[in-house]
Design a protein around this nucleic acid. Structure first.
Length: 759
RNA sequence: GGGUAGAUGGCGGAAUUGGUAUACGCGCAUGCCUUAGGAGCAUGUGACUUCGGUCAUAAGGGUUCGAGUCCCUUUCUACCCACCA
């Protein structure tokens, strides 16, 4: 290991900061480019080696775009509300804001040590009252528009965290955070009507450039299906297969369906009640377990099939979901596997009726066409302390009233205990001075809402605040929004596709409808990165003690080695195992570059050609997110230059320019040291080079000669050789001749590539 | 159970339109050098081989002059969704 990375890293990080070269300019005439990475939750564990994967990749894009002459906004901030800080507060009594501040300081120091070109002057923190003032303001816009409503909802309740969860936060029937099986519980919750935007969230995917798998996942999550609503007497069902209605042999209600009691005949009351009690005890995991046998109970009543007038029995079964469609289905055992399994178990008839024509079946059944979505409304309440207070007041006379704009933010009051109360209410409910207030509308006594927002709230719009972070009149000025939105490139984890990414698209569309943002989509292009695994291929986790700390890597090998290795290790979108040996290999490469700087002088055509090819490939690869092959291309060039013995100072300067986004500290240092090379103060202020086309053309090329598709020779020939000449040359080759036994049936020539003789 | 993406040397991976499979890096081997280092340099490194070649991209089949790449069947892995009517 030769170069002194500690000295060089610190020197250039200081210079960048002093010269403020990464500051995005407001009101610039230049074309803008907004590069965004998902801002981290500043956990107590510090930065994980997985964080820099996303940041490094987009740092490279940001640096390249700057060098291409664009006004780049590449900001960073903190998504700092959340359970871990609160859990720590419960344990230690230390206010979450204190821990959060310490964690943010650690994260900032760690990120700076890796040399990212963030514009630190625009840092935002979702827990800062100056920030969440606007989160609350936006919530009030939802409320005033009638999209935020309070509803008694059967919610997912985590008995360990004592917190209600959105459907989206339940993973496999268990709490996403702690893995505890989720129970059902009825609770008054603030909901936001994201389902009203389902169609637009779906359709507008056509207007954005997301990775196909991201689009697909959002489409499936929104889950549009076309079908019909049909009434079997008073029971309305949703079906996607109205053409099968002639084969209906029974109707099923979800256990939570409001008509269950009315449909139950007196002799079946006991059986039905017993069944309802059993299902209420089941967790979602048990109910959702496909391998278990279906259960259900007959209500004792019958309804009429509106198509053919037949009486069919009404059953209650938990394989029907209360939250989807109408919570009731018409069962067609002949055409549906689940219905078939249920019918077989309970001895219900499986009729054999022909399929109908869809429109006629709906018409004759007096049904109506209906589009249904899988997406549910967003449960927005949390009974927690460390979140934005929902800025509403309840007045006995006027009902729910929004806190006026000039009284925002509603700040979190100090509390003594951070635990949710035993009845599941937020700890804020125990603070009388917070709860008791006056009604903004009538001035009479009123009580504040004590629920707080989920941490998806602050992250739904943070990219707008970066645009104008110090504004205290608006969340961002109209002019600044017009210039900077939409985000041109956004990268984040696949796990946020149906959470944060969907929420923030919805949130943004709502703001667009309110006329306060200029675009209907927040992000023009979205990419995602794969997880970095431990060396043994398992997930890195604190409990296994296999987490790689970027601080240690930077201290031992330097920031440039970490950055370059993280991109070299594998395709950006795929999960890759960490390898310390791979890291050492990258460090060797950077050391080679340093040695190259000492051997500037004459240059062979071979080196010039290689350089221009490298410029082309590296440029294309960065644009296409193929960072791993970009690094290998840089390595190949260094091998060529090293073998040649020397290269010209001009060429070396060009090479350093394209190396600089990957290894900015070393590239800047070597540029400064090689005084012969014509480079100014900062690499980032240099123009990105374009390859000279004349060096990209080869005048001699290698042609592969095959006989019956098998490689027999390879010839170096002039690039402009004619087919006839080439065939003649090929046939003259000794080894080819040996295999050309018998009649040549066909001669295939692929220009610039190969000749194949078929015999 | 469904969807999506995959399966290439000892390892991470490359192969842009169907056209030299294994680039680049790691590891390993031999040698050189040496202010003995996680150094540097050189050479080699898919398997088998009678040294002519032959066989190799999860397994099997197909299309083609030619298949890692396209098609079919099967197996396995990862992620996401999981009774969505």
């Amino acid at each position: 290991m030769s170069y002194d990375h500690k000295k060089i890293d610190a020197k250039w990080q200081q210079r960048w900061e002093d010269a403020r070269i990464f500051k995005a300019k407001d009101g610039s005439k230049k074309k803008k480019y907004y590069v965004l990475v998902e801002f981290p939750y500043p956990s107590g564990a510090g930065l994980h080696v997985g964080h820099p994967r996303s940041y490094t990749a987009l740092d490279i894009v940001a640096r390249k775009k700057r060098m291409e002459g664009m006004n780049v906004l590449f900001p960073m901030g903190w998504d700092a509300f959340g359970l871990p800080a609160e859990a720590y507060a419960i344990k230690t009594g230390v206010h979450p804001s204190i821990v959060t501040k310490q964690n943010i300081d650690t994260f900032r120091r760690q990120l700076k040590a890796i040399g990212f070109s963030f514009d630190w002057s625009r840092e935002v923190d979702t827990t800062d009252p100056k920030y969440y003032r606007w989160t609350q303001w936006m919530f009030n816009q939802f409320f005033k528009a009638g999209l935020a409503y309070k509803a008694k909802a059967s919610i997912n309740w985590c008995p360990k965290d004592k917190i209600g969860l959105a459907n989206e936060e339940v993973v496999g029937g268990a709490c996403e955070r702690c893995g505890t099986p989720v129970e059902k519980r009825d609770k008054e919750q603030w909901m936001i009507a994201i389902t009203k935007y389902a169609d637009r969230l779906l359709e507008d995917l056509n207007t954005v450039d997301y990775l196909p798998k991201i689009k697909k996942q959002q489409e499936d999550w929104i889950g549009r299906s076309e079908g019909a609503l049909i009434k079997f007497d008073e029971i309305e069902v949703f079906t996607t297969r109205p053409d099968t209605i002639d084969g209906v042999t029974y109707v099923v209600l979800a256990p939570e369906h409001p008509l269950v009691a009315d449909s139950t005949s007196s002799d079946q009351v006991k059986a039905v009640q017993k069944y309802l009690a059993e299902t209420a005890k089941k967790t979602d995991i048990e109910r959702g377990d496909d391998s278990k046998e279906k259960t259900g109970v007959f209500t004792g009543s019958y309804v009429k099939n509106p198509y053919n007038g037949e009486d069919v029995p009404v059953w209650v079964a938990d394989y029907v979901l209360a939250g989807y469609g109408t919570g009731a289905v018409m069962a067609v055992p002949q055409h549906d596997e689940r219905d078939h399994a249920f019918a077989e178990k309970f001895g219900l008839p499986i009729e054999d009726r022909p399929l109908l024509e869809v429109d006629q079946a709906i018409k004759k059944s007096k049904g109506q066409k209906k589009v249904n979505y899988r997406l549910r409304d967003w449960v927005f309440s949390r009974q927690r302390y460390w979140g934005e207070p929902i800025p509403l007041v309840h007045c006995e006379k006027d009902g729910w009233v929004a806190v006026p704009d000039d009284q925002l933010p509603v700040e979190l009051p100090p509390v003594e205990k951070y635990e949710p109360t035993d009845n599941g209410e937020s700890p804020l409910s125990a603070i009388d001075s917070f709860v008791n207030t006056t009604c903004p509308s009538c001035g009479g006594p009123a009580k504040r809402e004590t629920d707080t927002m989920p941490n998806w709230a602050g992250s739904s719009w943070y990219f707008l605040r970066y645009i104008d972070p110090k504004n205290d009149k608006e969340f961002a000025s109209k002019a600044a929004l017009k210039y900077w939105t939409p985000v041109d490139l956004y990268n984040g984890g696949m796990e946020h596709t149906t959470l944060h990414l969907l929420y923030s698209r919805f949130w943004h569309k709502f703001l667009f409808d309110q006329g306060v943002v200029p675009t209907s989509e927040p992000y023009a292009r979205r990419h995602s990165h794969g997880l970095i695994m431990a060396e043994d291929g398992t997930k890195m986790s604190k409990s296994k003690g296999n987490v790689v700390n970027p601080d240690e890597v930077v201290a031992e090998f330097g920031a440039d080695t970490l950055r370059t290795y993280i991109l070299f290790m594998g395709p950006f979108e795929e999960p890759v195992p960490w390898s310390t040996n791979g890291l050492i290999g990258v460090r060797r490469f950077l050391d080679k570059v340093e040695r190259l700087a000492e051997k500037l002088g004459d240059e062979s055509t071979e080196v010039t050609k290689a350089l221009h090819k490298t410029i082309k490939k590296v440029s294309d690869d960065i644009d296409g997110f193929r960072f791993n092959t970009a690094v290998s291309e840089l390595m190949k060039f260094v091998n060529v230059a090293q073998e040649a013995g020397s290269m010209s100072p001009d060429s070396f300067a060009m090479f350093l320019t394209i190396l600089s986004p990957f290894a900015p500290h070393l590239a800047n240092e070597l540029a400064e040291r090689s005084t012969k090379a014509p480079i100014g103060t900062f690499m980032d202020l240099q123009p990105w080079p374009s390859p000279d086309p004349k060096w990209l053309i080869d005048d001699e090329i290698t042609i592969v000669i095959q006989v019956n598709g098998k490689l027999r020779a390879s010839l170096n020939v002039a690039a402009d050789i004619s087919d006839a000449e080439l065939i003649e040359l090929a046939k003259a080759d000794e080894n080819v001749q040996k295999h050309l036994i018998g009649e040549v049936k066909k001669e295939i020539v692929v220009k610039g590539k190969l000749v194949n003789f078929v015999i």
